[in-house]
Design a binder for these strands. Structure first.
Lengths: 237, 237
DNA sequence: ACCTCCGAGTGAGGATTACTAACCTCGACC
DNA sequence: GGTCGAGGTTAGTAATCCTCACTCGGAGGT
């Protein structure tokens, strides 16, 4: 009867259920375990895996908790044993992925000299990651960045660590004279990130095909040298 | 290059292309040609106004249809007389706003010479618009860009017209030699848009305060000249 | 062997939501 | 005066997120 493929319905439940936990993270996953080593319970793992696999061909808003539970082979209620929200589930999955990618990024930067070379490498790394892990890119760029509560969530904290990494490189470049010092590093960072995200978004949403290698080169050309044509200045502005 | 805006057929929804009514008073005194477009019914106008006012301090996903109907002073069902969806309501409101801003942008560009000057002006215009009409910026940047169906909606068609405008300026600049010709204009456009949107998003979401005038200057510096420190040119990598 | 505790997991709803079908009302027009 | 259709309403419905009370089984103390 229902021919409703409409995403982002949010009936049921209350919207502004205030969590007693200002961090937005639920501590239900951190009980006093016998020892520091505890593998997460199988049900929890299955739930996270189910969400990821469903995200392969459906957007988060269109995935129902019933669906998640069914593909995970558990009951709906179990989701709420481990996650405060449907959204909290997304955040925790995303946070784990981001943590992993942060480590990878740091690894990729090892042994590279010079701020500009590092920036180039980082740009390539982001593009390549978005290209190879589509679900991750979608989660980050379009399921999450638009929601208010994301900015109090765990994955946002990881995003901040990315920011620290990037700002560190920029400051290094400013000190060594590789990068101009008349603009705030935070702005430079936002421009770089914005460029990357915007091109990747166009690619994700409009199935515009790109090759990370080539795009890295073009982006660096643009970001490093600017859009002005070098040569005789016609109109000084 | 592949983002070349190609005209697609409009979605099935019907349009009430209404001319703007500055006085806010819309007496149905005019006979109104039978087959021509009439002024939209009051209920419809109230619904659109209600949504806009609710968006002032709530995100779209958290606004219920009941709420919209209540603040509009009509019943819920009336919404679905004029809009196919809750989202369709958002899209139509947004499309009207965008249409208006597109006209404004074209007006602001009149009498400006030179591609770089036009780009600078356009950047200022976007920043200023986002700064002054917060609700509009929020609608566009974070309620809409993440949804699949947006890319078949009316406001997306207007977005494409923005793209045409921007690409036109870029191509003009390439021809006159103001802008480098070794990079695809579509990429340049995406970088510019990404920079603007990313900075504005940070400003909207993290209440980072900016001044459009100052930010325009910095952004143009960055986008025009690049992030490299000018000076002794050593090796062009 | 028995009791207790506790985490993993379940079953059965409740509350709220987006959306719909059927109906009413009233002026215009023939 | 009958019809038609647009503007608007009443009274729902299915779907969805989330909660609460409950079961099961094993580890460990006594």
């Amino acid at each position: 009867m229902s021919l409703n493929p409409e995403p982002e319905r949010a009936p049921g439940g209350r919207f502004f259920q205030v969590s007693q936990n200002p961090t937005g993270r639920k501590d239900v996953s951190e009980p006093a375990a016998p020892n520091g080593d505890r593998t997460p319970p199988p049900g929890r793992q299955k739930i996270e895996k189910a969400l990821k696999s469903l995200l392969e061909n459906k957007e988060f808003g269109a995935i129902t908790t019933a669906e998640i539970a069914k593909t995970a082979g558990v009951t709906e209620a179990l989701i709420y044993k481990y996650f405060k929200d449907k959204r909290d589930l997304l955040y925790q999955v995303l946070a784990r992925d981001m943590e992993h990618h942060l480590e990878q990024a740091q690894l990729h930067l090892k042994g590279i000299n010079g701020a500009r070379n590092k920036i180039r490498k980082l740009i390539w790394f982001y593009l390549n990651t978005y290209a190879e892990e589509r679900v991750f890119g979608q989660m980050l760029m379009l399921e999450v960045l638009s929601f208010h509560d994301f900015y109090q969530s765990a994955p946002y904290q990881v995003l901040k660590r990315f920011a620290i990494l990037e700002l560190g490189i920029l400051k290094e470049g400013i000190e060594t004279g590789e990068i101009r010092d008349d603009l705030p590093p935070a702005l430079i960072r936002q421009v770089i990130r914005g460029s990357i995200e915007n091109t990747c978004l166009a690619w994700v949403k409009i199935s515009q095909k790109i090759s990370p290698d080539e795009l890295t080169e073009n982006l660096c050309q643009l970001l490093f040298k600017g859009i002005e044509k070098p040569g005789p200045v016609k109109n000084p502005n």
